[in-house]
Structures are given as structure tokens and as C-alpha cells.
Simulated assay, not measured.
Amino acid sequence: MDDVRSTVAGTGYVLGNDDPALSRVDALSRVHAPATAAWLHHAGLAPGTSVADLGCGTGAVALAAARRVGPAGRVVGVDTAPQPLAVARRRAAAAGHRGVVLEQADVTTWEPPGPVDAVLGRLVLLHLPDPVALVGADGPAGALVRLGVPADLGLRLDAVFRDAGLPDPVLVTGQPLERGGSATGWSIVGGDVTALADAFERTGTATAAEVGPADLEQRLRAQAADAGAVLVDPLVVGAVARVP
């Protein structure tokens, strides 16, 4: 599904791993929980299934998968950055998921310790230089494009899967709508802008003075509350392919 934009070292991840960035990841997970649930449903994770979650971040998808595969199943989450992995480990322990293992590694070279029944990855392919290779084995979006990050990769997942030689994927989409200043999505917008502030300057998208990242989220929330605005959160597209 293109937890969630997880960190992949050396592959162009530009959204950060400090505490504000991790809060933004949690906001993404809350907003897109229904779409993620639908995606996992189509993946058909059964009790006892062995799963790998690449770019697991703070563990939202790995833990959701663990609930589906049950105590007889196994979930291995992989991420490059230690900060989100530490959060994921705490959450797995608190939830009592003994079958969840979280490893620090580069997802482009990591190999599972044994056979797995399913491979998951939410908001990770757009940060990879060659998403087909992994699958086979103007605002923030404008800045991402200028940095070489394909912000529209979700809409190209069908082609990515086909190019990787996989069967026709089932596509699942979701785009939540939220109302007013309390919308969770404002944390995502504010977090994106804060993480990309330096990139805005480098790419000529905007200056820090023009954007005001330090209090952008608060200003957006206040304006949305005054106007009774509806926030259209980012469209996410999930793809599921079953290999014989």
C-alpha cells in the first residue's frame, strides 16, 4: 500500500525520523486505518500466516497483521531507522504480540530468515529508487516531485506489479474526509511541511518565511475551525497480488 511512509536509508526518504515526524506517522496511521484494514482483508491473512512488513515504521501495519495471524502466526517488521523501531517494539510488547519480531535493516537487501506467506509494505515504494525490483523479489507533493520522489506512485501500482511479473493485483483505495480544526490530517500536513522545510528552500518551492512551518499546523487548525472547512486527506491506493 502506497505506518506510514517508513524510513529506507539511502533511498530518498526525506520526511524525517525525529519525534514530530513519528507523531505525523501515527496521524497517518489513524487517518488511513479503514483503508489499511480493507487492504489487509484482501491480502487474506489467516491464523498461522507468516508475514514480512517492509518499512514498518512505528509498527501500525505489523501489529494489525499480528492481530489477524494470531498467536500461531509470525510477523517480521523491517525498518532502517532505530527510532520508529523502538516505538514499534514497545507497542508490540504492550499488546502482548509474542510472534512479532522487529529488525533494523535496509528493506532493499533484507532477506527473511525463512519462507513467508505474505509481504506487506505501506507507503514505502514511493521512497525506493526501483520499486519494481522490490515488488518482484505543488505543496509537499510538489517538493517531493522535485526531490525525485514519485508522489503519485499509488496510482501506478498496477503497472509496478505488472512490470514485476506479478498477477493482476486487486486495488483498494481510500480517501478520508474530515471536518473542522480538530481533523487529524492537519497533523499530517504540518508534519510534512516541517520535515520538508529545508527541501522547499533547496528546490525553490517556497521559503521558510513564506510557509512558517513552526506554527503552520496551529494556523491551519484555527482557519479550518473558523471556516468549518472540510479536509480532504491524501488518496491512498493499496495493491494485493497472489502468487501461485
Rank of each mutant, 00 (worst) to 15 (best):
V69Y: 01
V119A: 09
L134W: 01
V243E: 03
A137P: 15
V236S: 09
A72W: 14
R91G: 05
R162D: 13
G57R: 07
D226S: 09
A95E: 12
V31F: 05
C56Q: 10
S6V: 12
H42N: 05
T207P: 04
V232S: 11
L40P: 08
W110A: 01
G181C: 01
D3L: 03
S50K: 08
G44D: 04
H42R: 15
T173Q: 11
H42W: 11
A43C: 14
W186E: 10
V4L: 06
Q175N: 06
P131F: 08
R98H: 13
H97N: 09
L40E: 07
S6F: 12
A27T: 06
G136I: 00
R221M: 08
V135R: 09
R219D: 05
G73M: 04
V230E: 14
V124W: 08
D138P: 07
P244A: 12
L45W: 02
E111S: 15
V193K: 04
A38C: 12
V193T: 13
A21R: 02
L85H: 01
V119R: 07
E217S: 00
V76E: 10
A93N: 05
A46R: 15
G190C: 07
D152E: 13
G48M: 11
A27G: 09
L177R: 13
D130T: 11
S6E: 03
P150M: 08
P129T: 02
H41D: 14
P213R: 07
L125R: 05
H97C: 09
D3Q: 06
D198S: 07
E111T: 15
G148W: 05
S29L: 05
R242G: 08
V160R: 09
P20K: 14
H127F: 15
A214M: 04
A183D: 04
E103W: 00
Q175C: 02
G185M: 04
L157T: 05
C56P: 00
T194V: 12
T7Y: 15
R24F: 09
R156D: 13
V100E: 10
A151Q: 13
S50G: 14
G16T: 12
A38Q: 13
A164P: 00
E111H: 04
G96W: 00
D226M: 02
L128F: 01
R156L: 11
D192T: 07
E111A: 15
H97Q: 03
S6H: 07
G174P: 10
G70E: 09
L63F: 10
L45V: 12
F200N: 01
A92W: 14
L128D: 00
D53I: 00
V100T: 11
D233Y: 03
V4M: 09
W39L: 15
P167W: 07
V51K: 04
A95P: 00
L216C: 02
R68Y: 12
G114R: 12
V8H: 06
S182W: 10
P140L: 02
A64S: 14
L231F: 12
A151P: 00
A52Y: 00
T58N: 03
A60D: 15
A33N: 00
A137E: 15
A21T: 11
V101P: 03
E111N: 13
